[in-house]
Amino acid sequence: MNMLTLSHVCKSFGGRPVVDDLSFSVKPHTIFGFIGQNGAGKTTTMKMILGLLAADRGNIEVNGEQVAFGRTRTNRHIGYLSDVPEFYGFMTPGEYLELCGKIARMAPSQARSKSAELLKLVGLDGADTRIQGFSRGMKQRLGMAQALLNDPPLLICDEPTSSLDPLGRKEILELMLLAKNRTTVVFSTHILSDVERICDEAAFLHQGRIIRGGTLEEIRAARREDGPELEVEFYSAADAERFKARFSAARMFSLSGVRLEAQDEEAVPGILEMLARERLPVRRFERLEPTLEDLFAEMVRG
């Protein structure tokens, strides 16, 4: 059974469709990246999954149960981390997690041990000052602890890394990877390198619709019909120029580097042969994998 299923979900604000006939599902114990530009409908979709927003049409199921707006029943399956999580500044992290534990109807002893374990996991076990003095990164880590407190089968993170510095981002991504052992993770982002780092599956959302989805491998494969792109770097600019002169479509990407697209897979050995024949010393010869950034830019441009 899928952990999360959306079928034909629509939502518009003031006549403007924000989510348009959206359907996808997430299998248990995967990290699912939900990718899109700002305003693509990511947050709206997540809020509908959480029952914080009513869908105009369509059906959302979490762990086999239907989500209803304004009710919170299905939320017992979900841990949620928002982009900028807000806490009660007058509480300490321990007190806040205790409150969350009671609200999630956990047994007091279980809540205590779990919150100690999670505070340690997110590196806040020594912080028993009030939350109001916390940095963004600390709040995000506390948000992660809060989201995982009741061992939810589904963890939803809305742009958890977008407001963080590189170190904070790394920490949160690592926490999500760790969380994968215990739960299914759905996280939205516009930072594609984050997706490449930790996701098993992803969906590209554009203007409220999914324009491509599947495993990262499938998404990349969709572009492989074109020949492989190569990057060749030489020790001198003169060598680079000589090499470039041989290929009409080649272009310089630095003083001594050339980028070119081979016709197909068979053309690659021929290029290597030519380099050997001409005795051109190569500093680096690399076959470029299409980045998600490239794919996304292509898809959005249509």
Binding site: L50, L52, G70, T72, R73, N75, R76, I78, Y80, S82, V84, P85, E86, F87, Y88, L99, C100, I103, A104, R105, G143, Q146, L149, N150
Partner: peptide, 15 residues
């Protein structure tokens, strides 16, 4: 204004 209820509602706090 602060969005502090969202965490608790998504934890299953009945409104």
């Amino acid at each position: 204004l602060k969005g502090t209820l969202i965490n608790l509602v998504t934890k299953g706090l009945r409104r």
